[in-house]
Design a protein around this nucleic acid. Structure first.
Lengths: 357, 357
DNA sequence: TATTTTTGTGCAACCGCTTGCACATAATTT
DNA sequence: AAATTATGTGCAAGCGGTTGCACAAAAATA
């Protein structure tokens, strides 16, 4: 730790025979300071590569232009993309981003939120863990008046802003698409129903089935199937039942993946025997074999909107800010996995190219 | 902005008829404070949900247990995984993580580093942008005595700690593997050569070719091919040349992907006509068709080691810390894309399951 | 009992920057 | 020329904790 002695506004003041208050004002370009003095101060500051100490200024000002982000796991593609969007907007507004991950643990989430509520951040953007069913920690955040925005997995009981995609609409689009393609007997992989996004996707499944008067076979609705492994297990049960559906509408791409790989091993032809629709539009969907039809969640946009909303909320000093909910439209990306041979339909192309590192 | 009045150590002191210094010490469990007083203070603090103000304490103490992370782009799988590892270790040591992305821009990188050097962070972990060729900003960091750790894409001219995988060894493993599988005429997709990691991979290519006395056809070495698009273009040129190699050793999975998709369109059989080896072990490698042989970089581990090293460096108060370099061993994950039919070899299985969000 | 040592608290300066207010001096206005 | 207003700076009190040092009171030692 070399640790040179700090160069502060006091040194600048001394060198220019003035005081720290004048220097402080000069650096902020306060018009009450003469142009000559301002220039002198700024030149000297530049010369010495002076940077005002962040801790001191944020202590004095009461805010530090920092936003906290809490996600279940940073390396999940959806979350890292949202985070990227948040960072972009934050940086554009000279905010910094502090990230934390709950690793899907309620305990950790409690700790993290508590840890951020001590002036470290001026506002919080969060997507809750899968274990989170009550939200005393977020109550505290709201009580304390710390601006809060949820995205994707939200706490519905908390009166805070939210940024979501319309999962229900996304599910409906996927279902309508399958039905238009001749599927009648449709299976569903549902996610944990206490999480809003999964519940809404499942609701879409049921509603569209009903709308078209299609019979819902309870044996073809699988609870809590969102991982590759559980997807594979569900598929095994389907195969064992000897009663194949025309299609599977999965609440996630990874469970669809697991099921497809499993089906493929049993020689089931996809999409001809079973068509598939996933949810999330993972980067590999487009070059998977068969390319996987999925619902895009506009993760980057979710991040940008969340950050923009939070910053507005932080900077709204006058009136009491009223929590707002922004709902983005999802986009159904149709690919081969859901297109049975018999039917021909215009195919929406919307492939994105992924770059290597 | 509700903004309740703050509850500080002064209020606690008042309520207990003591002073803020005693409260401060009691909260830190300072043994000079009587057990009775400590308990009284801590109980009251807990009752009021008191949290010491981060800005104030970090100003007073001179550090804030925060580490800055600078990456080219957060949503790239490799970087988000490293970041996840960093966050895990940081959290375990009660550090917070501030993330910034350069978006591969040198300009942005300069700004970001400058922005972090004002007491916002106690140390910095960075992977440089592709545009970065000089490093005046990092010189400043070192001069100022701010602990610095590079990972993956490092600045070789800077005397700072580094955490890397042995890209050269990884490349050699991949090459030896291809050769053992009967490949002789091997093409190479190289990345930007001013970046250490890509240069080392390419060096591995040349060295192993030479070692086995294999002819290096300059037409089969492609510069700056790391994206899906450029991979596809390179493949087109190869096909046009009517002179197919036995194998392609690509410096990245995405360029291998582009090439494979392109080759497949032309009816080229993989791996029988052309075998492929990528680099990065992207999550989709294992279920791509054909599964892609690749070099795993242990991204999570890189993150953990980087954070551990940085924290050591930050907390090493006594001696002057000597920059250290940690080199991790990469792992060749052999899959079908590189296994020609004729040869049979024990296959290393090392598939990881990816969970949906 | 006198003296030394321990124990528990408080005082006050400080971390580096911000900002309301006061106050000279200079520029305008009557 | 006197009165008023504008202009440029400085004083000092924070922001909320931390910490070296001093100092009574209590305990231990002589």
């Amino acid at each position: 730790m070399a640790g040179k002695k700090k160069y502060t506004i006091h040194e600048i003041a001394k060198e220019l025979n003035t005081t720290s208050s004048t220097v402080s004002r000069a650096l902020q370009n306060n018009p009450r300071i003469s142009a000559r003095m301002r220039k002198a101060v700024q030149d000297l500051a530049a010369l010495h590569n002076y940077q005002p100490d962040f801790r001191a200024s944020s202590l004095a000002k009461g805010y530090g232009k920092t936003i906290g982000v809490l996600v279940p796991k940073i390396d999940r593609h959806f979350f890292s993309t949202v985070l990227s969007g948040i960072e972009e907007v934050a940086a554009a507004n000279t905010y910094n981003v502090l990230v934390c991950q709950s690793f899907e643990s309620f305990e950790k989430e409690l700790d993290l939120v508590k840890n951020l509520m001590n002036g470290k951040v001026d506002g919080l953007i969060a997507s809750i863990s899968i274990e989170t069913k009550q939200a005393p920690h977020f109550e505290h955040v709201v009580e304390k008046g710390l601006p809060l925005v949820f995205f994707d997995r939200v706490c519905e009981s908390i009166n805070a802003s939210k940024v979501l995609i319309d999962d229900y609409a996304g599910a409906c689009m996927a279902m309508e698409h399958l039905i238009k393609n001749g599927c009648r007997k449709i299976a569903h992989f549902a996610g944990p129903q206490h999480i809003n996004v999964y519940r809404n996707r499942t609701r879409g499944f049921y509603d569209i089935m009903q709308k078209h008067n299609l019979e819902i076979n309870k044996k073809l609705v699988f609870e809590n199937v969102i991982t590759r492994e559980t997807g594979c297990q569900a598929m095994q049960r389907i195969i064992a039942s000897k009663d194949l559906p025309d299609a599977i509408f999965s609440s996630g791409d990874y469970s669809a993946l697991g099921a497809i790989l499993c089906a493929r091993e049993s020689g089931i032809r996809i999409p001809d025997e079973i068509a598939f629709t996933g949810f999330a539009n993972e980067p590999w969907d487009s070059f998977f074999d068969p390319p996987l039809t999925s619902v895009d969640q506009h993760a980057f946009e979710i991040g940008k909107q969340s950050a923009a909303l939070l910053i507005q909320e932080i900077e709204d000093h006058q009136s009491t800010f009223v929590p707002r909910t922004i709902t983005l439209n999802p986009e159904l990306i149709i690919r081969k996995s859901s297109l049975k041979k018999i039917i021909t339909l215009p195919v929406i192309q919307s492939e994105e190219l992924n770059n290597g590192q």
